[in-house]
Design a protein around this nucleic acid. Structure first.
Length: 421
RNA sequence: GGAGAGGUGGCCGAGCCGGUCGAAGGCAGCCGCCUGCUAAGCGGUUGUGGGGGUAACACCCCACCCAGGGUUCGAAUCCCUGCCUCUCCGCCA
């Protein structure tokens, strides 16, 4: 969420930002709405002041057993008037709030301008796509032959876009999770395991609601939302808090299952593990001081990359252009891993700096030593990494001609085997 | 699920027969004084958001005693609803 006062004073800046983000939001009514709000607010406050003063007076007169009927009658009128104004004010404030919740974040100046994913910019590449002396298989063929992932059972038990992993497949999933958590915690991230169902406030705090309700699973009674990413519960750890300056930066890492409706992605990645309603992910989340957030974004991205390097998986890093960025983000790097079975790079991590956008929604602030007032922190997060897709990458990159899969060095202690056959 | 108790400032904790309460007191913290020995004592000070104001401070006003409604000239205090916490019983991994 952006600051109402900021928009009031920088409406042209916002207009340009929305344009390059390819967001069509009507800003015309906003200034008038704000003006009306401020006028009413002032009137309401002045009347309250009068009521406070006179009510005080009434108290004093009563103690002296003096006549107060006239004043009481007058104040009754004042109170009624306040009530009227406040009702109108409330309506305007609600409209303002809804408006603000639907305005996306503004891109950082370093973000390339572009209309869609075709204009994203590659930053760097690591590793060379492996050459195979045979035709590499898709992970779903590979996994089904090995008997380690069963998509039909997933469909039988739950439905499309679900799968069941067994034996070495389930083991590999767990190995990846442990490997990633161990690595992340060794870099100073505190491991947390949060609730997987959250309330509406948490979803609003990180920006999923109200705009993206269609992408969420939810329970009916009582109402909860299944998290689409650990970003939601972990960022909300500090909702409505004022942190001390010396507490920052705060780093968290969390393994969680994630649940996504994937509405509107019919026909996309229907086969395999790439796009599931339920998948596992290890997430990295940071709370930092504003002046540090862009350095922290580089470090966070590097931490995610490190996982791929240690696994020996080739990847590239791209920066998303203005037209392709997520709603809450000011700058996003995607890390894409090489998948020989598909002969292309696929997203495996998305690392974003939200600046104070989420912090304002979730009311996460900090206080500088010796300074008056508070400031919003900057929040960042990134996958480190999506486990299902990492598993896909391992299978496809480490497959052999006979259909077996070599276990990457880094995973062997967790797998207790060096070959999946 | 049943029966009780409770949610107050960074923390502890008064107030809760409505007005003198942004809220006693203590602790912690900060500033200063005093004291020659890690301590104690004394005085002062310390919340957040919004609106106005200023070159910037200062300052003024409004709101906030879990949240949302209600009663009243006036509510931390009374009433209703919700959320959360604790205790006991039941049930359960």
């Amino acid at each position: 969420m952006l600051d109402a006062r900021f928009i009031r004073e920088n409406i042209e800046t916002l207009k340009k930002a929305l344009e390059i983000r390819a967001y069509d939001i009507d800003l015309s009514g906003f200034l008038g709405m704000e003006q009306e709000r401020l006028v009413l607010l002032k009137e309401s406050e002045e009347l309250r002041n009068k009521r406070n003063v006179v009510s005080d007076e009434i108290g004093k007169l009563k103690r002296q057993k003096q006549q107060t009927d006239e004043l009481v009658a007058e104040m009754k009128g004042v109170s009624d008037r306040i009530k009227e104004i406040d009702e109108v004010l409330k309506g305007i404030e609600e409209k303002t709030r809804l408006f603000l919740l639907n305005v996306p974040n503004m891109p950082h100046e370093s973000v390339p301008v572009g209309k869609d994913e075709t204009e994203n910019v590659e930053m760097r590449k690591w590793g060379d796509p492996k050459k195979f002396d045979f035709e590499p298989l898709n992970h779903w063929d590979l996994a089904e032959t090995l008997g380690i992932i069963d998509f039909e059972l997933g469909a039988k038990i739950a439905g499309a876009r679900f799968s069941l992993m067994r034996g070495a497949g389930a083991r590999l999933e767990r190995a990846l999770m442990n490997f990633m958590l161990n690595l992340n915690t060794s870099k100073g991230y505190e491991e947390v395991f949060p609730p997987l169902l959250v309330n509406r406030e948490s979803m609003t705090g990180t920006g999923q609601l109200p705009k993206f309700a269609a992408e969420l699973f939810r329970t009916i009674d009582p109402e909860f939302y299944l998290i689409p990413t650990a970003e939601v519960p972990v960022t909300n750890i500090h909702r409505d808090e004022i942190l001390r300056e010396e507490q920052l930066p705060v780093y968290y890492t969390a393994y969680t299952p994630c649940f996504r409706r994937e509405a509107g992605s019919y026909g996309k990645d229907v086969r395999g593990l790439i796009r599931q309603h339920q998948f596992n992910k290890v997430e990295l989340v940071k709370f930092v001081k504003p002046e540090d957030s862009y350095v922290e974004l580089e470090k966070l991205t590097a931490d995610a990359e490190d996982i791929l390097r240690k696994l020996g998986l080739p990847y590239r890093v791209i920066v998303l252009c203005t037209g392709d960025m997520g709603f809450s983000s000011a700058k996003t790097y995607d890390i894409e891993v090489w998948l020989p079975g598909q002969n292309k790079y696929r997203e495996i991590s998305s690392c974003s700096n939200f600046e104070d956008f989420q912090a304002r929604r979730a009311n996460i602030r900090f206080k500088r030593e010796g300074k008056k007032g508070t400031e919003f922190v900057h929040t960042l997060n990134g996958s480190g990494l999506a486990i299902g897709r990492t598993l896909v990458a391992v299978l496809e990159n480490y497959q052999q001609k006979d259909g077996t899969v070599i276990v990457p060095e880094a995973l062997r202690e967790f797998m207790g085997m060096d070959l999946i056959k």
